[in-house]
Design a protein around this nucleic acid. Structure first.
Lengths: 102, 102
DNA sequence: ACATTACTTAGCCAACTTGCTAAATAAAAC
DNA sequence: GTTTTATTTAGCAAGTTGGCTAAGTAATGT
């Protein structure tokens, strides 16, 4: 994947933080992670007490921020973790933490 | 400071993610960081184009989530970085990233 | 005591979020 | 080709967020 310019990186950082601000979305990522990194929409939805369209929207948010990638397989949609943007968050945190001119 | 129980840690993680979801609040933290880790409310507000009460509210959010600590000095309020909850975020990210049963 | 400085708190409003149900889509099964 | 399965999209309502202005508070200066 191509290296992003500064503005795009900032945008992606912002999107990632926003996406992770919702507990359900964080939980979705963890659920997928502990099921091996990929799951169908239905399996994911089945693990939550929310109605399916609600989970579907959370999935879409995670997909548009790049934290999930969707792949179609017949009539199911497989969501797979894509954790590149987490590196941006870690980098941002390091900027805050460096003791002197980081 | 006392070690937090699991529920309190989860609550603090959630609060930290929510607080960091807003670009202005992230910028506030960076500004304070690059000014040495502590600044008065007025100095912080002066670096943004928002009205003072708006910045004040962002500061309150950051304070209640524990990312800033407020100290009074005469009529000024000094805000100081308090980055413990960032460790929770980093820990959460590691949970996602570990390749096998982390 | 009164004014000024340095803020915060209160309260309004527009925009966004997140739950829901109902309707649409698209592949598979019959 | 109609039904079933798997899922998304549309649209509504309640709650939250984040700007703003106006009013409050608390320390300092005169």
């Amino acid at each position: 994947m191509s290296r992003l310019d500064a503005a795009a990186r900032l945008e992606q950082l912002s999107a990632a933080f926003s996406a992770l601000a919702h507990p359900t979305r964080r939980q979705i990522l963890l659920v997928i992670r502990f099921r091996g990194g990929a799951m169908t929409a239905g399996d994911i939805a089945g693990r939550f007490h929310y109605k399916w369209p609600t989970v579907s929207r959370h999935l879409r948010v995670l997909e548009t921020t790049g934290l999930l990638v969707r792949e179609r397989s017949g009539r199911q949609h497989i969501y797979r973790l894509s954790l590149h943007s987490l590196a941006l968050i870690k980098e941002w945190i390091r900027w805050l933490e460096v003791p002197k001119k980081g």
